[in-house]
Write a protein that binds this DNA or RNA. Structure first.
Lengths: 140, 140
DNA sequence: CCGCATCCTGTCGGATACTG
DNA sequence: CAGTATCCGACAGGATGCGG
């Protein structure tokens, strides 16, 4: 697939067994649907460098997100136990979000996607250009 | 980053360099945003068992998806070079979608998320219950 | 069987203004 | 600074019907 193999390491036999059983499909679906919105993945991603951050710092790192969506996304992550929220009752208020071990596990899993993206974005762009050209020819 | 290594195998030094460099952030973002909609991940997931399928089979496997969204999602995947589309000019028409090596790479990367989900869904559910209870107390 | 076009709706999500 | 509330536009996405 990709000449340099290191992007996706070999699966252990055990891992494969887990990976392809059909029973858990509904569970995985649930997680995927929960996580597959415009911001959740990006927010989780933001925690890979700093494991604990203030609200404003997060908003800064996930560029483009509104405070409304950041709040909402963080609430969901908190509810799912992926992020922990600490309010320091000072003035001005200071709220820190920390990624939990659970969340960190997901972040690691996402790191695989991260790596794939970094390694293959050029191929994707190339495919895209080719596709668009082909379509323009057909349109003509 | 993680004390227990077993979830994600050791990264080669090379891979780590790719994984955490800040430069590629925009690229990864682009991919994540492209892929993080309601259906794309689920469709890719559907290809993990069978690498080539007819349209109707796909619609069957990704339960709940409308033909409109399936078509749209597949077009995007095709454009990005993740899926290949073959039209057999028979009657009735027979259209087959095959995941490409590129797409397969992404599917593998997603497999990490898959595994995480299967392993930790209980923890997520538990966290969710706890969170909801806490909120109900506060509401009272 | 596949998938396009049309219509229509709910919801996502941004902008703004206001509290503690 | 962090969060809520309100308003509102845009668009995702379902239902239906037609066409190849």
């Amino acid at each position: 697939m990709n000449p340099d193999n290191n992007a996706v390491p070999e699966l252990t036999p055990d891992a494969e067994a887990v990976c392809c059983s059909a029973e858990n499909e509904a569970l995985v679906r649930e997680i995927l649907e929960r996580v597959a919105d415009r911001w959740t993945l990006l927010v989780i991603d933001a925690f890979e460098d700093e494991r604990t951050m203030r609200f404003s710092r997060l908003q800064d790192r996930v560029s483009g997100i509104s405070q409304k969506m950041l709040t909402k996304t963080l609430r969901q992550l908190e509810r799912d136990g992926l992020v922990h929220r600490t309010v320091h009752p000072t003035v001005p208020p200071r709220v820190e979000y920390t990624i939990t071990p659970l969340g960190l596990g997901l972040a690691e899993a996402l790191c695989g996607v991260w790596k794939w993206a970094a390694a293959n974005i050029d191929a994707v762009h190339a495919a895209r250009r080719e596709f668009d050209q082909k379509n323009r020819r057909e349109a003509a």
